[in-house]
Amino acid sequence: MIVIKQVSGQLANRLHFFSYFIANGKAYNYSLLITCFPEFHDLFAPVGDDKLNVTIARRGIRQSAISKILNKLHVVTLKLKIKLPGIIFHSIPGYDLQLAQYDMNLPEFVKLAQQQVLIPQGWVYRDYANLKKYLPQVRNLFSPKNEFKSAVKICVELARSTGDIIIGVHIRRGDYIDFNGGKWYYDNSVYKNKMRQVEQLFEGRQCVFIICSQEPLNKDEFVDFSTLIEERPAIVDLYLLAQCDYMFGPPSTFTGWASLYNTVPAYYMQSADEKVTIDSFKEFFD
């Protein structure tokens, strides 16, 4: 059994992280308990009849108690330098520091997950092969509630009625002013330049840009383009990007999850100056 008690970041970070464990657990037949998703739990309404041995604790006394107990146990094991029978706090600091992916298919990892209670501590746990195999089940589990699906549908239908190709644009600023030294913190002029280049890729066809951002945007700054700009809940923006034909934005799990969820080709803006080509857009498993 694996218990995920803590993941840094917001909605997309957690969806991305959980998905590898859900797929790996399905492949190797171990159960998964997630206790660190209470604020997002009620955004989703799973569909289908997939046999996933996954429990996502909703907000409440049980969820809070489990998290507190596990956190205290972890502190005790670190302070006293002891091991608890049947419980493994599995840490991969070397992999995280080097951003080297930890292969969850390693026999020793699978054995621990099947025979003990394993609590992962780290970010770069990965299992691409099984995530690709069981992606339909992951999609079904993280299907948003109908009210959010309806909001996405309305926006997509409007975009389809006014253009030929829908391009999702994720304008990410906020914490990116400090993250990675501010490398991917771009002003609107950079995004508009990329939008012009994308229009040139599809010359002769009308591009409609659905722009998503966690901050209010001035529509007048994008008046030269056909756009849909409005303030929307993050869950709507996330699944709206997943309905686009193409999308781009700075590297983030937000764009990554949307690309994964509906196999949408995505371009990750590594720099302001790089030229956008059709080959810049890649599907998640490319």
Rank of each mutant, 00 (worst) to 15 (best):
N180F: 07
E157H: 08
V190P: 03
S19I: 00
A272R: 03
C212F: 04
M269V: 07
G94N: 11
F37E: 03
K149A: 06
Q137L: 10
Y95L: 02
M269W: 01
T255H: 10
P46A: 04
S150Y: 10
F202V: 02
L15K: 15
V198E: 10
F142A: 05
S280Y: 04
K149W: 05
S31T: 09
Q63H: 08
N140H: 15
V75S: 13
E199A: 05
E274Q: 12
A151Y: 06
L70G: 13
I177D: 11
M269H: 04
V75P: 08
I61R: 08
A12L: 01
S271H: 07
L73R: 10
D127Y: 01
R232F: 05
F40Y: 11
L70Y: 14
K26P: 09
C155F: 07
V276Q: 07
I119S: 08
D237A: 05
A23R: 11
Y186A: 07
F21Q: 06
S189V: 08
K132Y: 09
N105W: 01
I66L: 12
I69G: 13
L15S: 13
V7E: 11
R196H: 13
L158S: 15
T55C: 11
T55K: 15
D164E: 06
Q115V: 03
V76S: 14
E199F: 02
S19A: 08
A258S: 15
A234T: 12
Q197E: 12
A151H: 05
H90N: 08
I278T: 08
D127S: 02
L97G: 14
A113I: 00
V156D: 13
G182F: 03
Y134K: 12
F225C: 06
A45G: 10
G94I: 00
L228I: 09
T55Q: 14
S143K: 12
R205D: 09
K68W: 11
L84C: 09
K111R: 15
M104L: 03
P216V: 03
H41A: 11
K192I: 05
E274K: 05
I171E: 06
S252C: 04
V208I: 14
C36P: 05
K133L: 03
A100P: 01
V152Q: 05
Q6N: 14
F17H: 15
P251C: 03
A23T: 03
Y134W: 07
V3Y: 09
F142M: 08
L240P: 08
F225S: 06
C36E: 09
E230C: 06
I211S: 07
I211F: 12
N71Q: 13
S150G: 12
L43I: 06
I92N: 00
V208C: 11
N218Y: 10
F40E: 09
I92K: 00
Y268L: 12
N53L: 11
F202M: 01
Q214S: 13
I61T: 10
I34H: 15
V169K: 01
A100Q: 13
F89T: 06
Y186P: 13
A57W: 02
L33N: 09
I34E: 11
P46F: 03
H41D: 02
E203A: 07
D237T: 02
I2P: 05
N71Y: 13
N218W: 07
E274C: 13
D175R: 00
